[in-house]
């Protein structure tokens, strides 16, 4: 029932997303506008939402912490560093190669983050994302320093502020890759759930813990890199959507991942339509809208922890 309603809302919002815009769909250019801009944009928005939400839930299972997602673990900033380096030194690279370099950097950054949190004696789960945000801040300011020296602060600004207005036919096709990555994540869902049960449980069940961790972090890094190259940073998404779904449907990823995917697409689609309507005919970057709505939702989630019926052992 809820799922049907959500699917219906998704279709309605997707239609709205296709219909919203300055160009007139009644004119002779209608087909061109639809195929070149509107439909690619709607597809990109939905896939970005879905994949970032899945990246968030994967990260949370792998790190066993509710407050991590690529933008609170230094993953996104590391991807940005990779993208920056490749833009400066190899400007002729294709989008695909740029994305791959960014993925490798994202993976390396995630690895450093994981090493950091294993080395530091962290008493509270909230410390984990704080360390990640600090680490991301250091990487990010390094990028900023060189961007400033090389007069590239503007390009950096574009990456840092997620925005779908530049999505056009011929410049967005790479986003289909995240659909494949999400499919892979779903295929491996049981393994990620077992990893989320903790190292001892996972080993007891015969899971190759390290291998699954590596596979999971690779998926997360690639999703972060692709969405960064296509749309820029969209904050909070990977934090809110999985937390909401976890409360309603639990963490058995085989069951919950479709919900995460659906709600992620729905959330970003709604934010994108709002971003385009608020100052119509201009638009504000979606990262701003997601940031505002997302932070309010996140504070709400923090202030209302799930009820525990039993006694904590």
């Amino acid at each position: 029932m809820i799922r049907a309603t959500m699917l219906l809302a998704l279709v309605a919002l997707a239609l709205a997303s296709i219909l919203v815009g300055v160009g007139d769909l009644g004119g002779a250019q209608a087909q061109n506008i639809l195929l070149t801009s509107r439909i690619p944009r709607t597809i990109t928005v939905m896939l970005t939402g879905t994949s970032l939400a899945i990246a968030g839930v994967l990260m949370q299972m792998l790190a066993r912490n509710r407050f991590v997602e690529p933008s609170t673990t230094g993953t996104t900033e590391s991807a940005m560093l990779g993208l920056f380096i490749v833009t400066v030194f190899f400007p002729g690279f294709s989008m695909m190669s740029k994305m791959l370099v960014a993925s490798v950097f994202a993976l390396a950054g995630t690895f450093i983050f994981i090493t950091l949190i294993h080395r530091l004696p962290l008493r509270s789960p909230v410390m984990v994302p704080l360390v990640g945000i600090m680490f991301g801040g250091i990487v990010g300011s390094g990028v900023m320093f060189f961007a400033y020296r090389l007069d590239l602060v503007q390009s950096l600004g574009i990456w840092m502020n997620g925005d779908f207005s530049a999505v056009l036919k011929g410049r967005y096709e790479l986003i289909w890759l995240v659909a494949v990555l999400c499919g892979l994540a779903y295929w491996l869902a049981d393994r990620f759930t077992v990893v989320g049960m903790g190292r001892d449980f996972a080993s007891n069940l015969g899971l190759n813990y390290k291998w699954v961790m590596a596979a999971g972090f690779s998926l997360v890094s690639m999703i972060a890199a692709v969405t960064l190259v296509i749309a820029g940073v969209v904050p909070f998404l990977g934090l809110i959507v999985p937390n909401i779904v976890s409360r309603m449907r639990g963490d058995n990823l085989r069951l919950s991942m479709p919900w995460v995917a659906l709600l992620g697409a729905l959330f970003v689609l709604a934010c994108d339509v709002i971003a385009r309507l608020l100052r119509y005919p201009y638009e504000i970057p979606i990262a701003t809208v997601v940031g505002v709505i997302g932070s309010v939702l996140f504070i709400y989630l923090l202030l209302n922890p799930p009820r525990k019926k039993g006694v904590r052992a």
Binding site: R64, N65, G196, M197, N252
Partner: peptide, 28 residues
């Protein structure tokens, strides 16, 4: 093996948890 003091972060239902006991035999 079941160790002592198991903290499970993952939010699983009792039924799902027990199902994962079969993981070594038939995956998911």
């Amino acid at each position: 093996i079941l160790r002592q003091d198991n903290h499970m972060e993952a939010r699983l239902s009792v039924y799902d948890l027990v199902c994962f006991g079969r993981y070594p035999h038939s995956g998911g």
